[in-house]
Design a binder for these strands. Sequence first.
RNA 1: GGAGAGGUGGCAGAGUGGUCGAAUGUACCUGACUCGAAAUCAGGCGUAGGUAUAUGCCUACCGUGGGUUCGAAUCCCACCCUCUCCGCCA
Length: 479
Amino acid sequence: MPSPPCCARSACVCPVWPAACRWAANWNTSTAAPWPRPCGKDAKPSTESQETFMLDIQWLRNDLERVAKRLETRGYPFDPTRFQALEVERKEVQVRTQNLQSERNQLAKLIGQCKARGEDATAHLDRATGVNRQLSELEARLADLQQRLEALLLMLPNLPHESVPVGRDEQDNVELRRVGTPPVFDFPVRDHVDIGETLGLLDFKAASKLSGARFSVLKGGLARLHRALAQFMLDTHTREHGYTEAYVPYLVNAETLRGTGQLPRFEADLFKVPRGEQESHYLIPTAEVPLTNLVRDEILRETDLPLRLTAHTPCFRSEAGAYGKDVRGLIRQHQFDKVELVQIVHPDRSYEALEELTGHAERILQLLELPYRVIVLCTGDMGAGSSKTYDLEVWVPAQQTYREISSCSNCEAYQARRMQARFRNEAGRTELVHTLNGSGVAVGRALVAILENYQTASGAVRIPTVLRPYMGGEDLIGP
RNA sequence: GGAGAGGUGGCAGAGUGGUCGAAUGUACCUGACUCGAAAUCAGGCGUAGGUAUAUGCCUACCGUGGGUUCGAAUCCCACCCUCUCCGCCA
């Protein structure tokens, strides 16, 4: 039986942004995917008391040993016996609880009928009191059990895809390919800090006065180059790669961060913004957070997939675990700009989409003529939400090495499950979407790469050809 | 910042303690009628979870969380959000 779409295409009203479809059509010259147009009788906040886990709990119930083994490859210790014990108890208590609830409902109904007929209901009332006494105890036990199960499972990282190399840390990542050739200089190579400060366009002293360590002030041609980079990336992704540009909030609530997996585990990496009595906001650590959460609690039509979204935003990270790392320069800052790519796709297509998305990020580096390499992260080095991640690393001449400039991940249903982001499949059933994200690319680090790779003997910096239209035709930032 | 109104199924909109998971309209799906369509008629149409021979049965959900009660969409408390007016502001 064909699945009945739950609303007519023409009549469907997008509760996210009612005018969104028109926007996408009018503002985007590309073949951009439309905005989410949830067709939902059910497009309402998910508030089910049933907890939602990071992994499908059915995997654990049905295939515990294999899941445990795969988690081990990520260096995550998981105790199957403890889970098993909790699960057995949960099952027993839940069945008993629901049976009692059923009995209580029956009795309440009976009492109502008696009273309506003016009959005596004392006997039923007595029984109901007894049932409720048992029930309150059982319900408390069930809630406790489910909480403990959740606590156990909430920390689980995603399962790695079978194609991901098994390894402990970044040492075990695998290089897939190198593109471009690192430039050879016939003069002493300077690093981007040296270049920028000598030009008088990069000022860490001022930034430190304003804000402290790990901030920066860019001026003049350098500030413009930074802006040019972001513009160029956005234009490329919207015009050539089919993404819809979005402008999104930089402050988000806790629920949103739970959706993409930053909370509850990684609160220390975030900047929290209290606002009196009200719930705190957080500064986004990446546009992945607001972009991906656009489909939270939505049921999309299958024909809406894939959704391709991009945004240029600042990103804020407290980098709590990075003291002493990359203290010099623009590489590791509390605030940096990034153009982010997000795709919401059909589960059957997410690995194709990962290759495409990575290609979209690579395209930026190719057009900028920056040498880079692509590596696949091993099981031990991936982010918790990812099933497979490619990192793009750009050549940094002063360090004579490749440094990360983009990270492209397929999160499969990990985020979708937390967000309850679904689509209605052909059979008419709801199914979790797969989510992907990747930097396309980090603007600050791209700036570093250009300063260093395009430096000249005279201390100037040549401007990559594709950026010149964004720089008023200039081809050089010079002293 | 001040004042007020309100949050029920895709939409509209009933429901103020008892067969209400929720009337009715509309949209949508299937079937009948039709050469076909429209109209009309009949039926269907939320999400999540549990159980499992089951197209079966059960549980939860009317913004969120708590409370009262044998029984809550309905009563009480707190919170969140939206809208309107005034002020301020880019």
